[in-house]
Nucleic acid binder design. Sequence first.
DNA 1: TAAATTTGCTAACGGCCGTTCGCATTAGTA
DNA 2: TACTAATGCGAACGGCCGTTAGCAAATTTA
Lengths: 193, 193
Amino acid sequence: MSSTQLSRKEQIDQVATSLFKSRGFAATTMRDLALELGIEAGSLYSHIKSKEDILQRVCFKMADEFNAAFDEVKNKDVPAGEKLRLAVAAHVRVLTKNPPAAGVFLNEWRHLSEPSLSKFHDMRFQYEESLREIVREGIASGEFKVTDEKFVVLTLLSSLNWLHMWYKPEGKMSPDDIAEFLSNLLLNGLKNF
Amino acid sequence: MSSTQLSRKEQIDQVATSLFKSRGFAATTMRDLALELGIEAGSLYSHIKSKEDILQRVCFKMADEFNAAFDEVKNKDVPAGEKLRLAVAAHVRVLTKNPPAAGVFLNEWRHLSEPSLSKFHDMRFQYEESLREIVREGIASGEFKVTDEKFVVLTLLSSLNWLHMWYKPEGKMSPDDIAEFLSNLLLNGLKNF
DNA sequence: TAAATTTGCTAACGGCCGTTCGCATTAGTA
DNA sequence: TACTAATGCGAACGGCCGTTAGCAAATTTA
């Protein structure tokens, strides 16, 4: 039993999100979605504008959450290594709070049409750029021995963004445990973990 | 101009692969595919059995390549760290040899239907298990300081399997450069790179 | 109570989907 | 030359797709 009351529209978004994640946006039909909600397909349109309408809401809501979480880290005056830890923790927290939405955000955004698609691209680039800036700080101060910040951030995000594929809230690792593990692995490596 | 002659069927597989990768399997129509090849949709069926037929060939061909590359590493008598380096290099080599096929292998396999889907799952599990075995060796010998080999392999594969998203053959890093970078990052971390 | 909003149904629309069929044309082979 | 295989066309099939329209209950608000 849920503690907060969801509007019908929010229910639709939520159920659609888990279908989009497990079957993909293109392979999910409005009739599937309606069936899952126990209503007819046509009835959905009393609440939503279109199928892509749902996708847009999910994608941009998640984007906002990532940005909000990162904004709290961005301007802290701590060493780069520590800042990276905080950024990883923030990212993991968003990712694990709603794994289906995270999955849609990460894998289904390409089904957005213009101009949403371009807007999404821009937001994503900005986010990645902020992470690169942290790594550049660490390189400049000598804290990080690596030289290619682009590659590092790509690798970092790759490991983070696979999380939603296997993370289960009932598992034995909490989001913070996961964040700590990933930070240690990235910063110290297998041999110095 | 290509050096080896492709049969029509191979051409179809190749063009389909890049469409499946860029648009997704479900969002790619046979008419799209035919258009790209300059023929009519119905004509495709002189060469292939069905749409999923193509997906199966691509997925299992890639699976075979990963297994073949890994088999050359598996039983080498070298320290775990070195073996992991070799495994990473082998994986990267397969991944970069044909990025579109790699993308389909990694993201579109879920559109396989039974019994192909189960077979695919099994092969994948076996592959991952072999990697975990290497990490376990490293932990047992004290070479690796980490404790959770499952998590390590998940993270490793995550970073590797994002590669096809940004790798461009004409870029300045060769597959072996990439493999070396990733191995160093994983083994030594940002701080000791 | 009356009005307004929310929620849902049934039926249908135009269109696109994967696939099949029968028939041609071309290229390779003996 | 005649046979065979490879290749392709055009039309059509049954079916599913997202979406719309008109209408009816139910629920909330005033």
